[in-house]
Write a protein that binds this DNA or RNA. Structure first.
Lengths: 131, 131
DNA sequence: GAGGATTTTGACAACCGTTTTCATTTTGGC
DNA sequence: GCCAAAATGAAAACGGTTGTCAAAATCCTC
């Protein structure tokens, strides 16, 4: 029985950026869905375990989730204003991480890379200028 | 009056890797210091604000702190077994992040990069093998 | 040096996101 | 229809962090 899980997955697929669990929960309630917060958390965890969504922690400790188009390893370029997210491949970074790791005798290298910026539409110079 | 803050800073300086607030607090109490958990949190925040320590979030939402040798931008290579941390510079990554960002019209690019691995002394092949 | 304002401290409570509990409901098999 | 297994969700528990507030330490002025 995965209809709730699918519903949760759908919300994420329709979203441009990362969403928090509470956020997803609120939206589902708005859409009239009868679902509990617990179930949303469980669904998100299941999806994350299946590798169907990406998870990361915000600076204030919230977990945020995103349904990613590609299931291969990739990173995110996130607009810090509007949250819009672009998936980016980074072979250069992968190689760099590997190199840095083995250079220091480390093995089984993994890495987390997130890039933040202000996207074109949110750029201050695109709107009224400054100060 | 910054003697507590200095004490906290000292703990971090003597530590090889990232430490959590509660961790630092526990150690200070062990050393006989009379300090409250609240104060440790405040000290760590102050140090982080001053850029004297680096902060990052673990996967389970805990904030961890580290006194870094260099005050210029750098990244960390962390052993997932023993927590040993090496500071690494990564001009290649900086450039990559910038490139990726501007390629998509993003400005004011920042990034977070952490590399994890198993260090030489913790490597399974260095110890008894098996399974 | 005394007196008072200001800052720092720390015990405790409040918060907030997340997880667990557990009774109820739903589902699937026979 | 009936039972067992799984899913659900309300509420409580949890854990790290932050806020509150009174007491203590410190600084400044006279």
């Amino acid at each position: 029985m995965t209809t709730r899980r699918d519903a949760v997955h759908d919300i994420l697929r329709r979203s441009a950026g990362f969403r928090s669990a509470q956020d997803v929960y609120a939206e589902m309630r708005l859409h009239g869905a009868k679902i509990g917060l617990t179930t949303v958390y469980r669904a998100l965890q299941a999806l994350a375990d299946n590798g169907q969504v990406d998870v990361l922690r915000t600076d204030d400790g919230e977990s945020v989730y995103r349904a990613c188009a590609s299931d291969v390893h990739h990173h995110h370029l996130v607009c810090r204003k509007c949250g819009r997210t672009v998936e980016v491949a980074g072979p250069a970074v992968e190689r760099w991480a590997e190199a840095v790791g083995s250079e220091h005798g480390f093995t089984e290298i993994t890495h987390t890379v997130e890039v933040f910026g202000t996207c074109a539409s949110c750029s201050p110079s695109a709107a009224a200028g400054g100060r």
